[in-house]
Amino acid sequence: MERLLKQIEFIKEIDKIKFIFRKTKLISSNRNENDAEHSWHLAMMAMVLAEHANEPIDLLRVMKMVLIHDIVEIDAGDIFIYDATKNHTNTEEELKAAKRIFGLLPEEQAQELIALWEEFEAGETADARFAKAMDRLEPLLQNSSNNGGTWNEFGVNYQKVYDKKKLIKNGSETIWEYTEKLINECVEQGILKR
């Protein structure tokens, strides 16, 4: 019963992720996406697009990574990927959040999720590279469907988008080829400024 109570406490705590709104808006919508929607969408994308990974991946591990990667934002908050004042990288604040939130779970589950979160952040394994590719692709699909969305709202130009999105190539050359084409189409349409 003690194990179950810890798991239930974690499940209740992570409900807070539904209240963390991102800068990006849903595809063809004016409503901001929340972190829970983002994570669910990435898991679906990973499931559908797994065949395009550069290397063999463990889909369950990738799905776990994308489902948990933003849970730390319950404590640390969402950092806009194009934020010029705060770096969008693994911070001490995020690690502290990971240890607190995943630490609500029984020890071995907590350790597993912290390790998966750290692996995602490091982006060095095939699974993490593909998971990160999904994380970078989704906002591009959103912004391209919303006439530039947050790019225009926050004055983000082509070079910034290209520099952040080129990480997709590490997880999938095929998806990167599509991404590069889409970025260039956005420039041609005038929804992404050079």
Rank of each mutant, 00 (worst) to 15 (best):
E2I: 06
E2H: 07
L5C: 04
L5V: 05
Q7Y: 05
Q7A: 11
D15C: 10
K16A: 15
F19N: 15
F21D: 01
R22P: 03
T24P: 07
K25F: 00
L26M: 10
L26G: 09
L26R: 15
S28D: 12
S29I: 00
S29C: 02
R31K: 14
N32Q: 12
E33M: 13
N34D: 13
A36V: 08
A36R: 12
E37C: 06
E37P: 06
E37L: 10
H38G: 06
W40A: 09
W40I: 11
H41I: 11
A43D: 01
M45D: 03
M45P: 00
V48M: 08
L49Y: 13
L49A: 10
E51W: 04
N54R: 09
N54F: 09
N54A: 11
E55M: 06
D58V: 06
R61T: 14
V62C: 06
K64D: 12
K64L: 08
M65L: 06
E73G: 07
E73S: 11
I74F: 09
D75K: 13
D75F: 07
A76Q: 05
D78R: 11
D78Q: 10
I79V: 15
F80L: 04
Y82F: 15
D83G: 02
D83H: 03
A84N: 11
T85E: 14
T85V: 08
H88C: 00
H88S: 10
T89E: 15
T89D: 12
N90C: 15
T91R: 07
E92S: 08
E93K: 13
L95I: 15
K96T: 05
K96C: 02
A98M: 12
K99D: 10
K99E: 14
R100Y: 07
I101C: 04
I101W: 04
F102N: 01
E107P: 01
E107S: 12
E107M: 08
E108F: 12
A110E: 02
E112F: 00
E112P: 04
L116H: 06
L116A: 07
E119D: 15
E119K: 02
F120Y: 15
A122P: 05
G123D: 10
A128F: 02
A128L: 04
F130L: 08
F130V: 05
F130W: 07
A131K: 03
K132Y: 00
R136A: 06
E138I: 14
E138V: 14
E138K: 15
E138T: 13
Q142T: 01
N143W: 00
N146L: 12
G149F: 02
T150W: 04
E153I: 08
F154P: 02
G155Q: 04
N157Y: 06
Q159W: 07
K160E: 14
K160R: 10
V161W: 01
V161M: 01
Y162Q: 07
K164Y: 11
K164N: 13
K164E: 14
K165V: 08
K166L: 05
I168L: 05
I168A: 05
K169L: 05
N170K: 13
S172V: 09
S172R: 10
S172W: 11
S172E: 03
E173F: 11
T174K: 12
T174W: 03
I175H: 02
I175N: 01
E177V: 08
E177L: 12
T179V: 02
I183S: 03
I183N: 03
N184M: 14
C186K: 08
V187Y: 04
V187M: 04
Q189I: 00
G190H: 02
G190T: 01
L192Y: 05
R194T: 02
